[in-house]
């Protein structure tokens, strides 16, 4: 599953980093009907999480109300050099992951 992430490659200790992620996904609500009146099964990314240095720093739980191609912007306090790991999964069991390393300087 295609996603784009934006993480600063370098940050000062104690700095608040802006993290952005956007994922290509149709986010099928389950309320849309086809030509025969049957509902397209609901298929949305239900969970998105971000771990920083092994610790969970962000989690989002989504439902039918979130638009297609979800985009998130959140803030993380830079305290150690390490990896930011993003993971997500949709209702059909398909998921994805992205990672980025940030170097923290004093």
């Amino acid at each position: 599953m295609l996603a784009r992430i934006q993480v600063p490659s370098q940050a000062r200790r104690g700095e608040v980093m802006t993290i952005r992620i956007s994922i290509q996904h149709a986010m099928e609500t389950g309320y849309r009907l086809d030509d025969f009146g049957r509902a397209y099964p609901k298929n949305v990314i239900h969970t998105l999480s971000c771990h920083y240095g092994g610790k969970e720093v962000f989690r989002a739980e989504m439902g039918s109300g979130i638009a297609a191609n979800p985009y998130f912007e959140f803030y993380v306090l830079a305290d150690q050099s390490g990896e930011l790991r993003f993971e997500w999964q949709d209702d059909s069991g398909v998921g994805g992951a992205e990672r980025a390393t940030v170097q923290v300087v004093t």
Binding site: R4, Q6, R20, S22, Q24, A68, N69, Y71, E73
Partner: peptide, 9 residues
């Protein structure tokens, strides 16, 4: 250029 959803394409 990041938030623009068209950039995914």
């Amino acid at each position: 250029n990041f938030a623009n959803p068209g950039m995914l394409w």
